Computed example of a mutant assay.
Amino acid sequence: MPELSRRRALTAAAALATTAGASAVVASGAAADAGAAPVTPDTPGTPQAAGHEHGHHSPAPFDEVYKGRRIQGHPVAGGGHEHHGGGYAVFVDGTELHVMPNADGTWISVVSHYDPVPTPRAAARAAVDELQGARLVPFPAN
């Protein structure tokens, strides 16, 4: 039998973790189907109950100063192909911050693309935090 290498041990551990994770997801889905209470917009802990906007509802407009930077957001007409913000525009000090809604109702921006947040306002605040005082550079539209 070949000697157990670090690579083989890590591969086996990753496969085991993946299998265990998949089993947990399947088990939780089966438990939910077996009579768990349905999740509704008023169910505590759901994004809708926490004040997150989903579907065709546009988030409320905002205009505030956050950490010395003016952040603004408002719905825009259309939200079509030329505007990826799902019908919503966000600005940091007057420069548009490109935002995009995810399928799960969270939002991402060009500045914090891998850190989804619950609202466009939170995306603007996260961008200000990430910029650390630097100016937001306009992002060319395709």
Rank of each mutant, 00 (worst) to 15 (best):
V99W: 06
Q48E: 15
S109W: 05
A12D: 03
R6W: 05
I71M: 05
Q48D: 11
K67M: 12
A49F: 15
H54P: 00
V26D: 00
P44R: 06
A50C: 02
P41Y: 11
A22W: 01
Q48C: 04
A24T: 14
G68Y: 11
H52I: 10
A141Y: 02
R8C: 02
A141W: 05
A17T: 12
A141F: 03
I71E: 11
R8G: 03
S112C: 15
N102W: 00
L131Q: 07
V65M: 03
Y66R: 05
A20C: 08
H98T: 11
V25Q: 12
A141C: 01
G35P: 05
W107M: 12
A31H: 07
L131Y: 05
R135F: 04
A134G: 03
A89C: 05
E96T: 02
G51V: 06
T11R: 11
K67A: 15
A134K: 15
G78L: 02
P75Y: 02
G73I: 09
H81T: 09
L97Q: 06
L97W: 04
P138F: 07
V39M: 12
P2A: 08
H81K: 08
A22I: 10
A31M: 08
V99R: 06
A124N: 12
A123S: 12
G21P: 10
H54S: 06
E96I: 02
A60L: 15
S58I: 01
A89M: 06
Y66A: 10
D33Q: 06
V99F: 01
D33A: 13
T46S: 15
D93L: 00
A36C: 05
W107C: 08
R135Q: 15
S58K: 15
S58F: 02
L136K: 01
A9V: 13
A36R: 14
E3A: 12
R70Y: 03
P61Y: 07
R70D: 06
F62H: 07
G21N: 13
R6P: 00
A30H: 04
S23G: 14
S58P: 02
G85C: 10
P2W: 09
Q48P: 02
T95C: 01
R125D: 11
S112M: 10
V26S: 03
P116L: 08
G29D: 03
S109F: 02
Y66I: 10
G86M: 11
P38D: 13
A22S: 15
Q72E: 13
R6E: 11
H52M: 12
A123N: 06
A30Q: 14
V110K: 02
M100Q: 14
P2M: 04
H83D: 15
F139T: 05
A20M: 12
T95V: 15
V117Q: 00
E82W: 13
P38W: 04
E82G: 05
A126V: 02
H81E: 08
S28G: 09
V90Y: 07
A60T: 14
D104P: 12
L16T: 14
V110T: 14
P118F: 04
A77L: 14
T106Q: 07
G87H: 01
Y114K: 00
W107T: 05
L4A: 13
T19P: 00
G85L: 06
G94Q: 00
T46Q: 05
I71Q: 09
P61I: 08
Y66G: 07
A122W: 01
G86P: 09
G87A: 01
M100A: 02
S5N: 13
R69L: 01
A13M: 12
